[in-house]
Amino acid sequence: MTPLEQLAAHPFFAGFDPALLAVLEPCVHERQFGKNEVLMRQNQEIRECHFVLHGRIMLETCDTRGVCMPIQTLEGGAVAGLSWLVPPYHSFFDARVLEPVTTLAVDCQCLRLAMDNNHDFGYKFLKRAVRSVMNRLQASRLQLAEVYAHPTEPRR
């Protein structure tokens, strides 16, 4: 399978028009990362957006001493590096490999150029990205809400 065919099979692109997706052919290649490798670092430019095929990644935020707080785990089917979408295109978190990871890495400059040059592709891609961001946002809210705690009295 070519990287583009693998990308088409990623859940993010389920049902995506293959003709439109073809604009990413020059942008995508497969990458592999070993345990504890860092895919992206907080406050540094995101050069690649990763569509995860296998493995596990930890998003964490670290202080200047290198003490890190785990935020969320990502795995096959997820997208790591959504901050490529808005300037200054910097990562807010470290993304560290927990279990060896295979991703389809999409060059972010190439991706932005493809979206600018082909608005049909850009619009449909952006709808997927927004859905992914929305799902992540809702999941984060649930994390904050301590949703597994016993409910308090109903509001009257």
Partner: peptide, 17 residues
């Protein structure tokens, strides 16, 4: 789990994710 310390071997995040 919603919150974990470094070293937790499982997942972090809501069940939905």
């Amino acid at each position: 789990v919603d919150n974990a310390s470094p070293g937790w071997p499982g997942e972090i995040g809501a069940v939905t994710h």
